[in-house]
Amino acid sequence: MAVKELVALEKCLGLNSGKYSSRAQGAGKIPVLQTNKGPSLVGLSTIASHLVKEAKKEELLGSTAEEKAIVQQWLEYRISYIDRASSKEDIRNVLNDLNHYLKDKVFVAGNTVTLADILIYYGLHPVITGLSVQEKETYINVSRWFSHIQNYPGIRQHLPSLVFIKNRIYASNH
């Protein structure tokens, strides 16, 4: 899963595909990248951040100290909250928090797209796929952001485009 995602990210960044393997950790798997120089790198956000630097697109990691910290915070949120959400309630909590957070934002961090947008988009894709139209309307800010990111050039890759309805059709969600 995570490896597939990193391959998509490589394509999105215009990099050649690297050598990946997975290491078991608990019941999950952690991706490992074999780098040409130095030791291998372990972990989704570590590898993703490394790929961005390789592609010379550091702006995707944020430009100021503050933005960098925010980007990394949301990468951690992705791997330790979104990926670990197991029950419907966990998922609801994640969507609720994100929906609230994105209320006044176009991107997760700063005013441009960052790695945080990309990895949260990848991580949420299966969640959003499973939402009903009504739920999508409930998490309207997440939906707006998601729809925006999936249409951002290069990001979506192999993932199917999800449908959002522009008009609100449920009255109870206001």
Partner: peptide
């Protein structure tokens, strides 16, 4: 406990 770490990104269909 981490050993009981649940699987992620698996959701029942609507």
């Amino acid at each position: 406990t981490p050993s009981g770490k649940p699987t992620c990104n698996e959701h029942e269909g609507e």
